[in-house]
């Protein structure tokens, strides 16, 4: 910025300076709001406990120590496509555990015509993020810890 001083027409450089200022602001914002990785409930909906001998390892119970909400772009087509693949009850329970109570306990495909429903579904599936806590095997009670948003699903030797 300083190198630009003394030029004949400083207004010419205004866009450059504005651009720099924007970049600096962005860096500040990122330092303030940087949160690292977290786990979406969509990921929770696709994982199950695979410990030897466990016959029904789904759904993993969610234990929350810290959660965050993150804004994710809304994509209605993706949600409609996902709806058929999601276990609703597991999503509903996990969302409740995360403190989000606006989802209906039961859902059917006719609800996908409602924007209001889609927005709630979107929020629960993609915007509620687990940062610290655990996923717990429904059969054995084995804890899979979640640190910095990354669940540790590694099995011990005797569990494989």
């Amino acid at each position: 910025m300083f190198a630009l001083r003394g030029r004949r027409n400083p207004s010419l450089h205004r866009p450059i300076i504005e651009d720099l200022e924007k970049k600096i602001q962005k860096i500040h914002l990122r330092v303030l709001f940087s949160q690292g990785t977290e786990m979406r409930l969509l990921t929770h909906n696709m994982l199950s406990s695979n410990i030897k001998g466990v016959t029904n390892g789904f759904p993993l119970r969610v234990e929350v120590e810290k959660m965050v909400e993150k804004q994710v772009d809304f994509n209605a087509d993706f949600l409609k496509n996902m709806f058929t693949k999601i276990e609703w009850k597991a999503l509903f329970d996990a969302a409740q555990t995360m403190g989000y109570t606006d989802l209906p306990a039961e859902a059917e495909s006719s609800m996908l015509d409602s924007d209001e429903f889609l927005k709630k579904f979107h929020h629960a599936l993609l915007e509620l993020h687990l940062e610290e806590g655990a996923l717990i095997c429904p059969e054995t009670g084995r804890r899979f810890p979640v640190n910095k948003g990354i669940p540790n699903m590694l099995l011990h030797e005797d569990e494989v």
Binding site: E38, M39, L42, T43, M46, S48, I150, P151, L154, V160
Partner: peptide, 12 residues
């Protein structure tokens, strides 16, 4: 999202 696991025996 990331999962710490052995790809061979993650439960899906």
């Amino acid at each position: 999202n990331f999962v710490h696991c052995d790809v061979k025996n993650l439960g899906w």
